[in-house]
Design a protein around this nucleic acid. Sequence first.
DNA 1: CTGGATCCCGAGTGATACTG
DNA 2: CAGTATCACTCGGGATCCAG
Lengths: 133, 133
Amino acid sequence: MSQGNIDVPVQVAEVDPEKLEACTLLEVINRVSGKWPIGILLEAMRGPVRFTELERAVEGISRRMLTLTLRNLERDGLLVRTVYPTVPPRVEYEATPMAKELYQSLTGLLGWAERHRESIAAARVVYDGHSAC
Amino acid sequence: MSQGNIDVPVQVAEVDPEKLEACTLLEVINRVSGKWPIGILLEAMRGPVRFTELERAVEGISRRMLTLTLRNLERDGLLVRTVYPTVPPRVEYEATPMAKELYQSLTGLLGWAERHRESIAAARVVYDGHSAC
DNA sequence: CTGGATCCCGAGTGATACTG
DNA sequence: CAGTATCACTCGGGATCCAG
């Protein structure tokens, strides 16, 4: 969707489609990887949620990581941050449509994980020396 | 929203379905996160591939990380390792059907990434102070 | 309440050298 | 060819204290 001009000797660089896939996939994987992004996104998906609510909901996250992760998600346009200049500061975070769409895609992975959860566990037991029998 | 059962003292631990989703997703995300797993999987998906071939194909990976990542993927049953006791040792890795199915799921993420690549880039520019204008 | 600033430790990873 | 071993270093992330 980047052009319609025709007579240009396009230098598309012959990108190997598979390399491109690996790269792009890597970007999105990195975006949601880590312990916290998904948990936070899941909460913010249900509607506006406050900082403290997230702190309790995500469970186990430190204030520092909550802040940092929140900033990154906001930066990528996955979360909107709304500040209400009230006396006790009030800030709400909510997932953007883009983030919700991401979740739809993640569902595919979730399905895969659930379908193969046992297979993987079994594979590990075997690999680890199928000792504890 | 935590129950509807009345008479049974079920010990199902009352797992919040959303927590479960976050957890499972996290497992699979962690499995393929990192710089290397995807690249390796992509190569091994095309057919049996040798250690050295991977070392060149993945490009940028160190021998150490290649070995470690390979071991993890094998452990999870995503890769099969075949050793041919020939004079120069020959080892081949190939993606299992399970891994290929995983790739199908990853495709959903890839689609999302491509659809929103520009939006994200734009969001970042804005967030970063839309300076370099 | 919401977050920024520091300090610090351990896991992850690259570089390099060695081996069956 | 296909790894393994070691070392040094970076960096994520927790703990803690400070601030608007």
